[in-house]
Amino acid sequence: MDALAPTTGALAADSLAGAALAPTTSVLFADALAPTTSVLALLVAQNVAFYVIAAIMLFAGFRVVTSPNVVHAALYLIAVLAGVAALFLLLGAEFVGITQVLIYIGAVIVLFLFGIMLTRSPMGADTEVDHPRRLPATLAAALVGAVTIYSVLDYFGDEQFPKETRTTTNEVADSIFSDYIIAFEAVSVLLLAALIGAIVVARRD
């Protein structure tokens, strides 16, 4: 990627279209264009990409917590997770983004679907899936959301990202295996514990 030096002289409009076509790719594509296109065009492209992704995520997220069908909820969750991965790519965090796909969509969601189908697999809506008293829950969620949003806007309202946010896998790896080696070890122990725990809990004897 780094070696790429586009000479096509794409216009802002083109890049916009490109972003709209493949929103998840915009950061890389922005890289490719950065030297020759205006910063403005780049920002517009990134913002468009962001809002498209955000809209999809918000809708899907809403459906995850309201869909009466468990399997549908899981499928909507895929959309949210893919959106998160896309946001990571947008922020230049390639490795994390792809890990997100590999772990979340490839494993966690599959586990969820697996769990749903092993417990029961109702076709169509399940009416008993929510508590009847939704108001307090809505209020609690709204309170949490409002406080968080307010504080975020209050403290970080006008802070912009630096132009270059891309990080390479090398940097991530170096960081994990030097500064965060202890956390890394702790997490691996945790994984082992979870593995054993899951086996112990789930086995029949």
């Binding site: 990627m1 792809i98 796909v101 969509i105 490839g106």
Partner: peptide, 18 residues
């Protein structure tokens, strides 16, 4: 051409399970 090409390939190959 992705920096994390192999990793990417393995990740998206698991989508078919879904």
């Amino acid at each position: 051409e992705l920096d994390v090409g192999v990793f990417y390939a393995l990740a998206v190959s698991s989508l078919s399970v879904v």
